[in-house]
């Protein structure tokens, strides 16, 4: 137990270091981009024609951009711990509020697609492994290649064309909260979630298949057969759990991909999630919004990875945290 605690503490320290590096990197990269965010904001607001140096200076001061870069960085970082994420230049809105509006949307899509990816991926992989060399396996494996290699935007366009335009079964774009209108929400999220989940399903299925194929020839499985257990019992009780470790590792990859892919999927399906907020903020050079979103995304990915690592212990008691 002590070793586990030490391990968790060590991972958390690593996570803090990684977060710090990510935040510094994104801070520096945003500042390296040419162009003044205040000028950009003024150029697309009503102030364009009255824009003068005093106005630019006043806004620069208001948003703290006149201070030295290290001061700006540490102010932003310390404010986060006080719950103050800063103010968006482009939206003229509290960033915490903006993220609170957007993150639930992205998390709804991302978590659903991760869950679907995992469940379907495991089942498909298991089926392919158990039926190794048979027709089912011969159909599943090429499809998983397709799922891994198909670009997300292409999948989005194809689904939109077939199910939205030609069959007219699903709405093309938009997002409704499931708490507002459950069925509309389901219809609107089928295509985006499918696009986000396809890579995960395919990857997870391939990982699962390989893992099951490694487990099947093990002695304890042979013993189970020799005890006269039924196939279903062997697969579910003995093969499944012992094959999950590599798949759980892959979960971290899926989550990272889904979060990254949300930027594209949200843009194509016009979903007001955090991915689209990130894109528009990058174009508007809305420094603090980009920093804050990246920070939260990095934090989420790190936490998921820690949870994944800890889950090995549950899956395989032989694993020791040292």
């Amino acid at each position: 137990m002590n070793k586990l605690r030490t391990y968790i503490a060590r991972r958390l320290i690593h996570a803090v270091i990684v977060l710090f590096i990510v935040s510094v990197l994104i801070f520096v990269i945003m500042r390296l981009l040419p162009g003044d965010p205040i000028l950009l904001y003024l150029s697309q607001s009503a102030n364009l024609e009255n824009m003068n140096q005093e106005m630019i200076d006043a806004l620069t001061k208001k948003y703290g951009l006149d201070k030295p870069l290290p001061v700006q960085y540490f102010q932003w970082l310390t404010n986060i711990f006080r719950g103050d994420w800063g103010r968006s230049i482009f939206y003229n809105e509290d960033i915490g509020q903006l993220m609170l509006e957007r993150f639930p949307v992205t998390l709804h899509l991302s978590l659903t697609s991760v869950i679907i990816s995992t469940i379907l991926g495991i089942l498909i992989g298991l089926l392919a492994a158990v039926k190794r060399g048979k027709l089912v396996d011969k159909i599943i494996m090429p499809l998983t290649y397709l799922g891994i290699s198909a670009p997300v935007f292409w999948v989005c366009v194809m689904l939109m064309y077939v199910f939205g335009v030609e069959l007219n079964l699903l709405p093309i774009a938009g997002y409704t909260s499931p708490f507002k209108d459950f069925w509309l929400s389901i219809k609107q999220t089928i295509m985006p979630i499918t696009c986000m989940a396809i890579f995960g399903i395919a990857g997870c299925a391939r990982q699962m298949r390989s893992s099951v194929l490694e487990v099947l020839p093990q002695d304890y499985i042979r013993t189970a057969w020799s005890k006269g257990l039924r196939e279903r019992q062997i697969v579910i009780k003995h093969v499944l759990k012992n094959s999950l470790s590599p798949v759980i590792t892959f979960l971290g990859v899926i989550f990272k991909n889904v979060i990254g892919g949300s930027v594209l999927v949200e843009t194509i399906f016009a979903i007001p999630g955090v991915g689209r907020l990130l894109v528009s903020s990058i174009f508007a050079h809305d420094y603090v919004v980009v920093q804050s979103i990246t920070f939260v995304m990095a934090l989420m990915v790190l936490l998921v990875n820690i949870i994944v690592d800890l889950s090995y212990c549950w899956l395989d008691p032989r694993v020791r945290f040292e």
Binding site: M160, N168, G174, T267
Partner: peptide, 18 residues
């Protein structure tokens, strides 16, 4: 009025009647 940043999505919405 809906915000659709991608013109291809906007076209698809017109074609589907959305």
């Amino acid at each position: 009025i809906r915000f659709i940043p991608d013109i291809m999505t906007a076209q698809a919405m017109m074609k589907s009647g959305d």
